[in-house]
Design a protein around this nucleic acid. Structure first.
Length: 945
RNA sequence: GCGCUUGUGGCGAAAUUGGUAGACGCGCCAGACUUAGGAUCUGGUGACUCAGGUCGUGUAGGUUCGAGUCCUAUCAGGCGCACCA
């Protein structure tokens, strides 16, 4: 009887559905294990063969853990808000919800065919009101919170208001946009609007002025990658830098905790390192410089406090508020000209070509260490968003300052002994400091750094700055606050309305604020976001409901926010929602949260390292501060699955003909390579009939064959429709079965490595499953399983397998585990093993990899229960022992002869035997044995003298 | 430029962490069974070779009785960040 995978898989998928085999409920008597995949965005193209890679890997682990006796949560859902659905809506007028739900159905259908053990009762979709209720709720919580630097956690904003009422900003140690200086009286006398603005400076979700790529023609903000050479990719309209009022999240407040948390989680070094770089902690000092002939002063940030004596000029970012203050009347025209130039450059342009540009402001700053007057320049190489937007320039020891000084002819003063700065700056933080202060000059302050190492000098200067109140020691982070609003339709609406221009939160009990219907998904003519098209989109404060915009009277009915939330809003806490997906009272109940804790194993792509994986850690830390999540880190262990690339096939058309030449002969002709659909190619062999039928123009194609075959060329490219290299999992499932697909995807190589999809090897996995089937049924359909006593060899084979597979699963080394299966099954087949005592553990071991087949075989073995609940087999060491061990005896690296020993032979026994053998064989050539080294792997090495 | 990462047969890859390099699979070769094979089974398959061996893990050194594995330098590919003071 043949292995009828189609029948088996259909049967078991149906049974799993009917019996709710994979439903999971909290069970205090069982240890929990939470496995999670990054949930997919349901695109119109459906799943290709690369998508399930991570799902299969985690599914195997989930099934394994379940067999190990854990209560395993393995949920799945959809990240359903996003741009493609909206774009499609704009083009076709179809509501994005409709297309999104259609795509979800298709995804589900495809996923079901692969036999995952997801608990579908816990499915979430980020675009449904019962889900985004809690996205809005969390946003409001953040709005109503500030971050205390002393306790390093979020606190309710009421505490801050209390403080402001009592002390003003005095003694406030909180995360803030800018340093404010208010007395309690000043605060109390402020209008409601002014107070609201002040609080925005502290809230964790706040309205802030940020620089964005604004495209006036498109009426929207564009992301950096949507802009090339100063124009929008779509339409080619000019893009300018603009300050806009946007919702932001104060992610930067959590910078230190995000950094520290990395030490407590089990992620790959590379992804941790990426996050560390992204957070970009740098220790330094802020130093105040007075502006000459003025009462103003400003602050710069430096990590090189040791170079204070080498400052020859100062530089401000063009966007800095100081620019106006320091620009003198004589320089006004020049400066304005420069600012216009800078404004015309996009952030991207500034990033790509680092032109040395700048303008002198006309003012000077007084160096607090030398008393010298340093000219203040304005240049785009200083970034407004980092530090204070102002720097002190030390051209001798910073390459950017050096380039600037050379270009504008500014002095360069070296500060490190032996540093040659005639050609380039000396940036290394090494060496002995000199010229600090310079010899022969009247000292301006009593700090002397000469003779110290750079590190000592930095420390000494920091101390000096602190003691003399010239500034302060400061840690800066590169991590920026996240811009949280988008001018789009298909996203979570903000539960916010504007009462006389002051943002107000829709009361918590009225959540969720549901996304309104609109007829047009484009921005309005007046430049409002798409939600401006919504008619029923105003908040009635007295009736507590959303009403028609026509009723806005600014007394009881107010306009609602028109922005929506960005993509990462919905994906930042979904792992908590899976724990308790139907709860309409809370994001997650305390019981569920305490049972499931956090995700034990998270599987997904590394491309989210600086996006989702930062935001959700931030989000979870925030919820943790209030006790809504009991674990500070959401994802304990992270596995990054590699990307599956496409393997394209080519045919070669001879110029000006409809004749195609096989790959090996193509050099004899003048040909053009043409992508050919990989689905009509097998092992690089073109199916000629299918090719003729593929496209009308190939109906009468002719071929130049080699050995009677047409061999296609190939190349590794991105998997995409236009390259005709998309392989649909449905097709593989239909042809080989889901179990073969699962096995093969894992057999392809290590999961964390990117690799091309290559259907060529799939037959091997299919053959293997057939061999497994062949252990149970003979060709003519006879059941082979017996209760006979297993042979010693079979017991050894199976125990070796148990050991190997258990280890490999724990290490996510599935490809080698599958190799081990192949070896073992080969051995069992050769041994003609039919003993139940051996076949049973084999099925149990294979069940996570090939669940359909194993359920069937489990039933064949006479079991009523699902194989998922069968316990994971344990190794019986006794069967692994070798009777004798063959040791190769080598002299100085060369194998001379082999000897057999009992496995427990001592080193001395071996040495003695080796000596005897040596005496007989005279291999030592008159030399003396000085050392016998017994090492693993059955090798004895003898050192001669 | 900086950070991370990977280099092993015709191909995907193993290598018990310093111990017989290339397990396992694909492909290829030979044979068996077949009317036939894109089916199945068996065997072979790193390269050179005077058939004794010699050389082989990107390249060049080093440590070691012994190196794919450790150290130094260097080259190449992939990913990420990029004027972060």
């Amino acid at each position: 009887m043949d292995y009828n995978f189609q029948e088996i898989e259909k049967k078991w998928q149906q049974r799993w559905r009917e019996r709710k085999t994979y439903r999971v409920v909290e069970d205090k008597n069982k240890k929990k294990f939470y496995v999670l995949n990054m949930f997919p965005y349901p695109s119109g193209a459906g799943l290709h063969v690369g998508h399930p890679l991570g799902y299969i890997a985690s599914d195997i682990y989930a099934r394994y853990k379940r067999q190990k006796g854990y209560n395993v949560l393995n949920p799945m859902g959809y990240d359903a808000y996003g741009l493609p659905a909206e774009q499609y809506a704009i083009q076709t007028g179809q509501h994005p919800e409709k297309t999104t739900f259609q795509n979800i159905d298709r995804y589900r259908e495809q996923l079901d065919k692969i036999g995952f053990c997801f608990d579908w009762d816990r499915e979430v979709r980020t675009c449904t009101p019962d889900y985004y209720h809690w996205t809005q709720w969390a946003f409001q919580k953040m709005y109503n919170s500030f971050f205390c630097l002393k306790s390093q956690k979020a606190h309710p904003i009421e505490e801050l208001i209390k403080h402001l009422n009592a002390h003003g900003t005095e003694g406030l140690e909180v995360a803030q946009t800018e340093q404010l200086d208010l007395t309690a009286t000043q605060w109390q006398q402020m209008s409601e609007k002014e107070q609201s603005d002040v609080l925005m400076n502290y809230r964790l979700a706040f309205l802030g002025e940020t620089m964005v790529n604004w495209c006036p023609k498109l009426g929207t903000v564009l992301a950096n990658d949507e802009v090339v050479d100063g124009v929008s990719i779509r339409g080619g309209y000019p893009v300018e830098q603009k300050k806009m009022r946007q919702w932001c999240l104060r992610v930067s407040a959590y910078a230190q905790r995000l950094l520290d948390g990395l030490d407590t989680i089990d992620w790959s070094d590379s992804i941790k390192e990426t996050q560390r770089n992204w957070i970009g902690r740098s220790e330094g000092a802020e130093v105040n410089f007075k502006i000459a002939d003025s009462n103003e002063e400003f602050t710069i940030f430096t990590t090189r406090a040791d170079t204070m004596f080498g400052v020859t000029f100062m530089v401000l970012a063009p966007e800095s508020e100081l620019v106006e203050k320091v620009t003198t009347t004589e320089q006004k025209d020049e400066v304005e000209k420069y600012l216009t130039y800078v404004k015309g450059r996009t952030e991207r342009e500034r990033q790509i070509d680092h032109k040395v540009t700048g303008v002198f402001s006309g003012s000077y700053a007084i160096n607090p260490f030398t008393g010298e007057k340093n000219p203040i320049w304005i240049s785009e190489y200083v970034l407004a968003g980092y530090g204070t937007g102002a720097i002190m320039a030390v051209p001798a020891h910073d390459s950017r300052d050096y380039a600037f000084a050379k270009h504008f002819g500014l002095p360069i003063v070296p500060l490190i002994e032996g540093a040659d700065v005639s050609e380039e700056s000396y940036d290394a933080k090494e060496g002995i400091v000199c010229n600090s202060p310079a010899a022969g000059k009247e000292p301006y302050c009593d700090l002397v750094l000469n003779g110290l190492t750079v590190k000592e000098a930095i420390q000494a200067t920091k101390m000096y700055v602190k003691e003399h109140s010239l500034g302060r020691v400061k840690v800066n982070y590169r991590l920026r606050d996240a811009i949280f609003s988008r001018q789009r339709y298909w996203g979570e609406p903000f539960p916010v309305y504007y009462k006389n221009g002051i943002p107000k939160m829709v009361p918590e009990e009225c959540l969720p604020v549901e996304l309104p219907e609109v007829e047009n998904f484009l921005p309005t003519e007046t430049g409002e976001p798409p939600l401006g098209n919504a008619q029923i989109w105003a908040w009635d404060e007295t009736q507590h409901k959303i009403v028609d915009k026509a009723l806005i009277d600014e007394k009881t009915v107010f306009p609602l926010e028109l922005y929506t939330m960005p993509g990462f809003a919905g994906s930042s806490a979904y792992y908590l929602r899976y724990m308790d997906p139907h709860n309409d009272k809370a994001l997650v109940s305390k019981e569920a949260d305490e049972y499931w804790q956090n995700v034990d194993l998270y599987v997904g792509g590394s491309e989210h390292a600086t996006g989702h994986l930062i935001y959700s850690r931030y989000w979870n830390k925030f919820l943790f501060d209030y006790g809504y999540s009991c674990k500070e880190e959401p994802f304990q262990k992270l596995i990054n699955q590699g990307m599956i690339q496409g393997r394209s096939n080519f045919v070669y058309r001879i110029k000006d003909s409809n004749t195609f030449v096989s790959n090996g002969l193509k050099d004899k002709y003048e040909t053009t390579p043409i992508h050919v659909d990989v689905n009509i190619v097998n092992n690089d062999l073109l199916d000629l009939e299918a090719f003729k039928a593929w496209r009308p123009e190939y109906n009468d194609a002719e071929f130049v064959l080699e050995d009677g075959k047409y061999i296609c060329g190939w190349a590794i490219e991105k998997m995409s429709k236009s390259m005709f290299n998309v392989v649909n999992p449905d097709y593989i499932v239909e042809r080989y079965g889901a179990d073969t697909l699962r096995l093969y995807e894992m057999f392809l190589g290590p999961i964390n490595q990117s690799k091309p999809w290559d259907s060529n090897g799939i037959d091997g996995c299919f053959r293997f499953l057939r061999k497994v089937w062949g252990l149970f049924y003979s060709r003519d359909g006879q059941l082979l399983v017996s209760n006979s006593e297993p042979s010693k060899e079979s017991l050894k084979s199976i125990n070796k397998l148990i050991q190997k597979v258990s280890q490999d699963i724990e290490n996510f080394s599935y490809n080698t585990a599958i190799s081990a299966f192949m070896i073992c099954v080969g051995e069992l087949a050769q041994q003609k093993c039919s003993a139940k005592a051996v076949l049973e553990p084999l099925v149990e071991l294979l069940a996570p990899f090939a669940p359909h087949l194993c359920e069937e075989l489990w039933e064949v073995l006479g079991h009523q229960t699902t194989v998922c609940d069968s316990p994971w087999p344990e190794v019986d060491e006794q069967h692994l022992k070798e009777d004798t061990e063959t040791l190769s005896i080598s002299f100085n690296g060369k194998t001379r002869f082999t000897l057999d020993f009992a496995p427990d032979a001592s080193k001395e026994d071996i040495e003695k035997a080796a000596l005897e053998a040596e005496a007989t064989a005279r291999y030592t050539e008159g030399k003396q044995i000085v050392k016998v080294i017994v090492v693993p792997h059955r090798i004895v090495n003898i050192v001669l003298k």
